[in-house]
């Protein structure tokens, strides 16, 4: 991939062809405040915080929509940009419920970061008096339009990445909000509860229920199916409290489905088997791993040739290969089948 050279704030920057100015700046370690840009989504240009001045381009283009060009000269900071950004953030804050300390996105909120960067120190516009309904219908996450900044990331990820399109912008002007078809509760929509919207929401408008901050994150692979999505399990003490898609995993690049993202509670469930059980005298009783494996081996040996194996699409290819190999080679039968045989 070819590289291009541009100047940002007087610094010579190298960038990949195809990057936007914002991406080039961020890659070079230059922060430009932004709320609606996302590396996984197409350029949108709604929040206008990433405006810059580019020599040869009129006005204040949004750096998230301007392709970086060879020889481009960009300024990310000027008195005009500063006052404009401060006005934009002030406008957003006037319409944003301010309960930052109690907000689930506290400390990981892009609006906080932007407000801190542009330096909004006082309330410039009167606080909005409207109270929008909170959609609590989904068991995993909550939509609170009182905190929505209409960056559109949720809409775009649902459409562009998930291909679901459960939500969209509805109404016009100041009444614009994120909603479903006919404005029904999210649970009654096409929504598959994957929570991609929650993961992308830069503010507290879409939050996972009962969210707590982790004490550490553990990198792993989702155990639900054969796709092998990369996971970062959020752990607090010894307890898994949330799952996050691993952006570094080439399999899912951060995306997750409803199970991977919200189906982690079995890990801590009291019914979960943590030791092998052997049925003795009609009752399941705890056993050691050696006892259990010994028993399985014995039983399998007894059934050689009188055996069938049923595999699952949710296992990895490798697991399924090994199973059929074992069935044919060890159990001496070709009776292998699969649940997804349509």
């Amino acid at each position: 991939m070819s590289t291009i050279n541009l100047t940002i704030d007087g610094r010579a920057i190298e960038a990949r062809q195809g990057m936007t100015v914002l991406e080039a700046a961020l890659a070079a370690g230059i922060y430009i405040p932004n709320l609606c840009a996302d590396p996984d989504l197409r350029p949108f240009g709604a929040c206008r915080l990433c405006i810059v001045e580019v020599e040869g381009i009129r006005g204040l283009p949004a750096s998230c929509t301007v392709p970086a060009g060879d020889g481009m000269v960009v300024r990310t900071d000027s008195p005009l940009l500063e006052t404009t950004r401060r006005t934009l953030v002030s406008l957003l804050l006037a319409d944003h419920a301010d309960d930052c300390l109690a907000c689930a996105k506290n400390n990981r909120c892009s609006l906080q970061t932007a407000a801190a960067y542009v330096g909004v120190r006082e309330r410039r516009f009167p606080k909005a008096t409207r109270v929008l309904p909170v959609d609590d219908s989904n068991p995993f996450f909550t939509y609170d339009m009182n905190k929505c900044i209409l960056c559109g990331k949720c809409v775009r990820v649902c459409d562009e990445v998930q291909g679901v399109g459960a939500i969209s912008f509805v109404n016009r002007g100041y009444d614009t909000k994120i909603g479903t078809l006919m404005d029904r509760p999210i649970i009654s929509s096409l929504c598959e509860s994957c929570g991609q919207c929650e993961a992308k929401c830069p503010v507290g408008a879409i939050t996972a229920k009962n969210y707590q901050q982790p004490s550490r994150k553990v990198k792993t692979v989702c155990s639900y199916c054969g796709v092998g999505c990369g996971l970062l399990l959020h752990v607090r003490g010894s307890k898994v409290i949330a799952a996050e898609g691993d952006r570094e995993s080439p399999v899912n690049r951060g995306s997750l489905c409803v199970k991977g993202r919200f189906g982690y509670e079995y890990v801590n469930h009291r019914d979960r088997l943590t030791r092998p059980l052997i049925r003795r005298d009609g009752v399941l009783q705890e056993a050691s791993w050696d006892e259990a494996l010994e028993l399985v081996a014995t039983k399998l040996a007894e059934h050689r040739g009188k055996f069938a194996a049923l595999a699952s699409a949710k296992c990895t290819n490798e697991d399924n290969y090994v199973l059929q190999k074992f069935t044919r080679g060890v159990m001496a039968t070709n009776n292998v089948d699969h649940c997804a045989r349509i």
Binding site: C47, L150, R172, G173, Y174, T176
Partner: peptide, 21 residues
């Protein structure tokens, strides 16, 4: 214009609202 703003960008959606206010 406040009502006819498409609602996408911040200055138009919220700026016209504050100006009208």
């Amino acid at each position: 214009t406040e009502k006819e703003s498409c609602g996408k960008c911040v200055p138009c959606r919220l700026g016209t609202h504050q100006m009208r206010g």
